[in-house]
């Protein structure tokens, strides 16, 4: 069936693959952001009782930032078999994205929390605000504008990293390129088309992320 790269079937096939790429990235990074938020806050608590949890969170972040995403994918593929043998490959890859994204986003959120000047937190304590109120009314509103731009940039970057899920057999964009080539398209056409699609997604998203950065940065310095 070598021939028309722009036939309706091929375009529908590529669109579905693109959808899976975005699904893995968006779901994985969103869950990762929420868990990362919890872990980052946890790591900045001081209660002695929470020390083991702080320690586990630090261990988690260090571990998953030092193992290649490809190896994480392979480990998740095989570990998950024990709990959910019928989970789809897309689901497995999404879990792997979540695990990796959580580790990196914990660091990004943490840097944002640390950017809030200490005196502000101390004054909140002096005013008698509870730990939770300090977090909610003093730290998070200010940290937010520091956290969002790099977190958005991270998510845009991860769109490209999900290409490795092709190794598991998830029919996302990179694997779609392989399938097109196996069906008889020239490697230049098959992989070239996929490359262009990635750029078409990544470039505008990257622009949005960086405009987010300049807008939020401006509001900080007002």
């Amino acid at each position: 069936m070598s021939g028309d790269l722009f036939s309706p079937e091929t375009l529908a096939f590529l669109a579905a693959a693109l959808g899976r790429t975005l699904w893995m990235t968006f779901i994985g990074c969103t869950i990762g952001f929420v868990i990362g938020m919890v872990l980052a806050i946890l790591r900045r608590t001081r209660a002695p009782l929470l020390a083991p949890l702080r320690w586990a969170a630090a261990l988690y972040v260090e571990t998953f930032r030092r193992i290649p995403f490809l190896v994480i994918l392979i480990l998740v593929l095989f570990s998950v078999q024990a709990f959910a043998p019928d989970l789809s490959l897309l689901g497995i890859a999404t879990i792997a994205v979540t695990l990796a994204a959580t580790a990196y986003l914990t660091e990004i959120v943490g840097a944002g929390l640390d950017a809030v000047p200490r005196p502000q937190i101390e004054s909140a304590e002096v005013l008698g605000l509870s730990w939770f109120d300090t977090l909610r009314h003093v730290v998070l509103p200010q940290a937010w504008s520091v956290i969002l731009p790099p977190a958005a940039a991270f998510m845009v970057m991860f769109v490209k990293d999900t290409a490795l899920a092709s190794h598991l057999g998830v029919v996302e964009l990179a694997f779609a390129g392989k399938i097109l080539v196996n069906k008889g398209f020239s490697p230049l056409a098959g992989f070239g088309a996929v490359l262009v699609l990635y750029a078409l997604i990544s470039w505008p998203l990257g622009r949005i992320a960086s405009s987010l950065e300049s807008r939020l940065a401006a509001s900080r310095h007002r």
């Binding site: 490209k160 990293d161 290409a163 490795l164 092709s166 964009l173 990179a174 390129g177 392989k178 080539v181 020239s186 490697p187 230049l188 992989f191 070239g192 996929v194 490359l195 990635y198 750029a199 990544s202 470039w203 990257g206």
Partner: peptide
């Protein structure tokens, strides 16, 4: 810079490895 940073390294290497022989 924008061509490279907006596309996955894996697909770039697919091109180098499979398409250059063409």
């Amino acid at each position: 810079v924008s061509a490279v940073t907006n596309t996955p390294a894996l697909v770039q290497i697919f091109l180098l490895y499979y398409a250059l022989p063409e």
